[in-house]
Structures are given as structure tokens and as C-alpha cells.
Design a protein around this nucleic acid. Structure first.
Lengths: 208, 208
DNA sequence: CCTTATTGACTGCCTGGTCAGTTATTAGTA
DNA sequence: TACTAATAACTGACCAGGCAGTCAATAAGG
């Protein structure tokens, strides 16, 4: 067995390790300012090795974003199940999960930052992200709203056309934390509760 | 009088022209990827001239962000006047203005993008922005919510602690447009109307 | 000993920043 | 008004350093 710190042949693990290191560096410095030497150092290899697995810096960036998106894509499937019970209860569960995923988890936030920063360099990346991740998420949310309306639980509202309005506080919290850091983050539990409360009142059938 | 296209001495106008050109380039390419030669070309001068007015690329970036923030800062003052009439009416006017300012105006959106992309490089920039621009805006919104509660128009809600929740759809629309382009922008008027409608229902005193 | 994953020194290009020189402008003089 | 001198805004050629990408040499594994 090879000694740690020495050269080892690891064809299988390398790409994942490189992407992992690349994510940290891209998130820290942005695409242009990231040095492949630093990525390599973080992965415990040298720059040359990166080029055995990725043809260019741009390709490495693309691979990184795709890889980091995978968990949320996979989790989305579970949420698309046929709704039952109170629509509001579904929304509660849904948003509790989404908060944990997008606001609390640093990686998801950093992906948002990276995409926003680099869309002009990779226009098709944003398109794919919308088509594969965001679009379905919006559609899923819309389905729950419709379900609530059919059930007589919700009134008809703009939330049916723009489920984005319901999702907005998540993006707000995400952006806030990205910009002002963990120290100034909005209090997670209270904020989520407030979000759900306002949403419930906003959507509810009421006052006759 | 000097002929157009020839060298001219313009000590007064230069800084503004350079900042203007820098904004376009920074917005297009981000901080690291922006070339000062391009900025100079856009401003109709050469790189050397930039260094007569700004000591470094970083200083130019800072000056650019500050300059672009100025209009929204100045407009904010006008909105902080003593509230009167329906609180909801104030919110309507307020958000109509904010939409025009932040969602429709490309420059404000690009500022958001630039700040998000580069905050890690300029931590004090984010701090100042929060202290000077965002903080007062949140406070202003909170004042209107309190006014509405005192008036018996609004119920007590999380919007008092987190006015962010009311502002969130603006950030959402802003972010959406930044990422997916003008072609996929959310329909401005209908979206704003939906935002206001949900907000009104969410905040309103009602159902006894 | 053969294969191949990995290295690390090397290249060429790019770009932030410099500075000696150039030219428009203004002030001074007649 | 015409000419000259002094000033300083502006230029552009020029470094110096950094970094993406290359490749011949090396060493681990079978």
C-alpha cells in the first residue's frame, strides 16, 4: 500500500476530489480569480493532473456547478408526490425542507452566488438550471397551490400564476446571508415561522 | 475649440466618464475579468489616464459601486417622510417605486449582481451598503407596518420584526431577471399586483 | 518490465501598473 | 491680436508578474 503524501494512482476518486476542491476555490474567489494551482493544491495533486480529467478551466467550472446541483435535483423528485391532507401542511413541510436546503446549507447558497456572478460567461448554464431545477420546483409549488384552491382551503390568487411570490422569502434570506455573512443572518426559525404565517393569511379563503 | 476625436483636457468630466465606462465593463465581465484597457477604450481615453484619477483597479470598483448607489440613497430620503392615510396605500406607492427602481432599471440590478459576486473580496463594502442603504430601507418599511398596526389597519405579524418578508418578492424578481435574462422576466405589472394582493391579505386585520 | 497516472518545470500570453514624453490650454508679454 | 512660456492632462510603449495550458520524465502498480 502506498504511503500517504506520496503519489498514488486513483483514477476513480480523482474527478470527485478535484470537483470538490474546485467548488471551494470557485466559491471563494469566483471563476476568473481562481487559480488552478490552488485547486490542485487543495486536492493534494498538481495542476497537470487536473488536465488529465478536465479539458479546460471552463469545463471544470461547468462540472462543478452540475455536481453541486445534483442533491437538490434528486430531492425534488420526492416532493412531487401526489398531495393529500391540508395544502398548508404540505407547504409547511415543503418550506421547512427548502430552508434547510437553501438557506442553512452553505453550498447551495454559494451555487446561487456563482451562477449569478457568471451567467454572462455561461448563458446556457442558467438556461439548463432553470429548465432542470428551478422550473420543476416552481411547477411543483403551483400544483400545491391549485390543490389548495380545489380543496376550498385557499382562495384563487396570484400565487397560482406566480408561485415565485411564495418562494421569494427563501431567496431573500439566501441573498441576505450571502451578502452580509452568517453573523448578520436573519433568525432562521422565527423568520420561517413569519414567512409561513404571512403566507397562510395571504392564501387563505376568508372573510366570507 | 478642439475637434471631436482629438485629445482634450477635461479634468472635471473625466472621473464621471471613467466611472460610467467602468460600470458597464464591471457589470458585463465582473471585477477580475474586466480589463482596464477596455474601460479606457469605452471612455475614449487610454489606461494611463485612469491612473490619474484612481489609484488602483479596486478603488475604481469601489467608486463605481458608490456612485451607482447614489440615486436610490437619495430617493430613499423622500420616502421617509411622516406617513399619513392608509398604510396599505403607502405600501402600494412605495413598492411601485421600488419595482421601477430595482427590477426595471438594469443598473440597479447589475449593482446587486456585482455586490453579490464580489462581497467576499470587499467585506467592508457590504457592511457600508447595509448600514447606509439597506438598513434604512428596512427601517422605513418597518415604520409603515407599525403605523398600520397602530391604526388598526394591520394585525400584528412577523412583518414587524422582518419587513424583509414584504420586500422579498422584489429581490426574487430582481434575481430572476438577473439570472434568466429579460426574455424570461416575470410579467412586471401582474407580478407587482399579485405581490400587493398577497401582502394586503397577509397583513390585514380580518376574520375578527 | 510494461503500462499509465502523476509530476513539475516550462512557455507564451495577458494585464495591472509605470513613466518619460507629447500636446492642449492658459497666462503673460508686447 | 500675435507670439511665447509655463502648466498639466494625456498618451502609449514598456515592464514585471501571474497564470492557463503543455509535455517529457518519473514512479506506482500489475
Amino acid at each position: 500500500m502506498a504511503v500517504a503524501g506520496q503519489r498514488r494512482r486513483r483514477k476513480e476518486e480523482r474527478p470527485g476530489e478535484i470537483v470538490e476542491a474546485a467548488f471551494e476555490e470557485f466559491a471563494r474567489a469566483g471563476f476568473a480569480a481562481t487559480k488552478l494551482d490552488d485547486v490542485a493544491a487543495r486536492a493534494g495533486i498538481t495542476k497537470g493532473t487536473i488536465y488529465l480529467y478536465f479539458p479546460s478551466k471552463e469545463d471544470l467550472f461547468l462540472a462543478t456547478v452540475r455536481e453541486m446541483n445534483r442533491p437538490s435535483q434528486e430531492n425534488l423528485a420526492a416532493l412531487t408526490a401526489a398531495p393529500q391532507g391540508s395544502a398548508m401542511a404540505i407547504l409547511r413541510t415543503h418550506f421547512a425542507f427548502v430552508y434547510a436546503q437553501m438557506v442553512e446549507d452553505r453550498r447551495a447558497r454559494e451555487i446561487l452566488r456563482m451562477l449569478m456572478a457568471e451567467v454572462s460567461r455561461f448563458p446556457d448554464l442558467a438556461d439548463r438550471w432553470r429548465a432542470e431545477v428551478i422550473g420543476p420546483a416552481v411547477e411543483n409549488l403551483r400544483r400545491v397551490v391549485r390543490y389548495g384552491i380545489e380543496r376550498g382551503e385557499f382562495r384563487p390568487s396570484a400565487a397560482e400564476e406566480f408561485p415565485h411570490l411564495l418562494f421569494a422569502p427563501v431567496i431573500m434570506a439566501c441573498t441576505w446571508r450571502l451578502m452580509f455573512g452568517d453573523d448578520h443572518a436573519l433568525d432562521g426559525a422565527a423568520y420561517l415561522e413569519g414567512h409561513l404565517d404571512l403566507m397562510e393569511r395571504g392564501l387563505a379563503q376568508g372573510e366570507g
